[in-house]
Write a protein that binds this DNA or RNA. Structure first.
Lengths: 249, 249
DNA sequence: GGCATAATTTAAACACGTTCAAAATAAGTC
DNA sequence: GACTTATTTTGAACGTGTTTAAATTATGCC
C-alpha cells in the first residue's frame, strides 16, 4: 500500500520489479524455506541474514519484523486459496457442494505450512496485533475473503430469511475461521478429526440457514438477529461503497 | 506440584508456609502490582527484581517464567470466582438465573485485571502452551470449572435430552470461555457489548437445550450428537473416577 | 558445635529480536 | 563526468527474557 512507483522507465516495464522488491522476494523465499525446515522460533534473524548473505539490519530494511514474513505468506496463500475455491465452486450449483469445496480449498492451500499458521494464530488472537484477521491491517484480505463467501452464496441455490441474508457472508467466514483454528491445533493424524467435523457439522449449519425461512421459528430468530446486529454491526453487504475492482486509470 | 513437604516440624504447622513459599508469594504480589500499574510488557524482569530487592536470577528460582506469574493469578482468581458463583447460584433454582449469576461472577472477578487476561490469551491459544485452558497443565482448574457447571445444572430445573446431558457441563464451559475471550478484547466502554451479548444470547442457548427434549428434532440432533462425540470424546460426567475430594489420610 | 548437604541468591553472561548511526552503493541531474 | 540525492547495507549496539556457575545462607545430623 502507498508504494510510489513510477512506471516510466523501460527497465521497470521489462523486469516489472524494482531491486528492492526482488530482494524482499528473495528474503521471503529464503525465510519461508528456513521456517519450514527448522521451525519459526528455531530460526533466528542471524540465521536468515546468513542464509541470504546479508546483515540482519538489511533484513529490517525490507521487512518490519520477523512476523511480517508470515503476513506476506498469508497474503500469498490467500491468492491460491481464492483461485482454488473459485474453480471448485464453478463445478457446482448446490450450496453445500460449493461451500464444502471452498473449505477444502482453504485447508489444502494451508496444508504444507501448518506450523506457520500456529505462529500466526499465536499473535493473531490479539485484535490489536497487525496479524489479527479481525484488525484493521488485515481489512483487505478479510473483506476479500468475505466477498468470496458472497460469491459462494450468489451462484448457488441457497435460500434464507431476508433479514439473515446480509449477515451470511460474515457468518460463513467466521465458521471457516473457527474451522481453520481447530485444524491448526488438531493433532489427530492428518487432521482427520477436523475433516470429520466439517463433514458432520457443515450440512447442519446449512440446514439451519435454510430453516430460517420457516415463519414459525420467528420467536427464536428475533433475538438471534439482535445478536447478529450486535456482533456484526456493519456487514459488508450493507455497506455503501461495495464497488468491486473498479480500478480507474 | 510434587513438593516434598514434611509436616513434622512445629514451625511449619505454625507458619504453615515455608520460606520459599513466602518469597514466591511476595514476588507474586509485587509482580501483579507492577503489571497492573505499568502493564505486563512494560514491566521488565529487572524491574520486578529491583522492586523485590532481589536479583533476576532469584526470581527464576521461584517462577519458571515471567508468564508463570499470570498462571498463578489465574489459579487465584478461580477460587474467588468459584466462591462468588456458588453464592450467586444458591439464591436461585431457575437455571437461567443460576447460569447468568455464574457468568456474572466470572466477569466481575476478572474485571480489575483485564489486561493480564490479554497476555494470558495471547499464549493460551496454543494448546501446547502451559497456559492453555485446553492443555494438560490446566487440567485441574479446567475440570474444577466444568464441575462447577455441573453444580449449576444439578441444583436447577434444567431439562435436556438424555443423550445431551453428559455433554452439557463441557458445553456450558466452552460457551463461557468464548464469552470471556470476547470480553477480553471487547473495546466498548466497560465492555457493555459483551454484557449485551450475554443478555441476548444466553437465554436462547438455554432454550435450545430445553428444546432438545422434543422428539421431532431428532433428525437435526442426531448429527449434532455425533459432533459432540467427536469434539468431546470423554466428557467429565462419563469418566470412571469422578470422585470428588476424597482425601484419604 | 561442627560439618555435610540442601536451599537460596548473586552477578555476569547468553541469545534473541530489533534499532541506529554511519558507510557503501545506486540513481538522477546539470 | 562530477555532484547531489536516494537507496541499500553494515555491524555494533540495545533491551529483553532467561540461564548458569559460583557464592552465600539456611538446615539437618551426630
Amino acid at each position: 500500500m502507498a508504494k510510489t512507483q513510477h512506471l516510466d522507465s523501460t527497465e521497470e516495464l521489462k523486469s516489472k520489479k524494482s531491486k528492492s522488491e526482488r530482494t524482499a522476494e528473495r528474503l521471503y523465499e529464503i525465510s519461508i524455506d528456513q521456517f519450514l525446515r527448522r521451525g519459526f522460533d528455531q530460526t533466528t534473524m542471524r540465521d536468515l541474514a546468513q542464509a541470504a548473505e546479508l546483515s540482519p539490519g538489511a533484513f529490517y530494511y525490507h521487512f518490519p519484523s520477523k512476523e511480517a514474513v508470515i503476513q506476506r505468506f498469508y497474503e500469498q496463500t490467500f491468492a491460491q486459496f481464492a483461485e482454488a475455491a473459485r474453480e471448485a465452486m464453478s463445478a457446482h450449483e448446490r450450496f453445500e457442494a460449493r461451500y464444502m469445496g471452498l473449505l477444502e480449498a482453504r485447508l489444502s492451500t494451508f496444508r504444507s505450512s501448518r506450523e506457520l499458521l500456529i505462529v500466526l494464530s499465536r499473535t493473531a488472537v490479539d485484535p490489536r496485533s497487525t496479524l489479527s484477521p479481525f484488525g484493521p491491517d488485515q481489512k483487505e484480505i478479510r473483506e476479500a475473503t468475505i466477498d468470496l463467501m458472497r460469491e459462494c452464496i450468489d451462484g448457488s441455490d441457497l435460500s434464507a430469511h431476508a433479514k439473515l441474508r446480509p449477515y451470511l457472508p460474515e457468518l460463513l467466514w467466521m465458521y471457516m475461521m473457527g474451522l481453520i483454528f481447530y485444524w491448526v491445533f488438531d493433532t489427530s493424524p492428518e487432521q482427520k478429526q477436523t475433516r470429520e467435523l466439517i463433514r458432520l457439522l457443515t450440512p447442519q449449519i446449512i440446514r439451519l440457514i435454510r430453516f430460517s425461512r420457516i415463519p414459525l421459528t420467528g420467536r427464536v430468530l428475533q433475538p438471534l438477529f439482535q445478536v447478529l446486529q450486535l456482533v456484526i454491526p456493519e456487514p459488508l453487504a450493507l455497506r455503501q461503497d461495495s464497488n468491486k475492482s473498479t480500478s480507474r486509470e
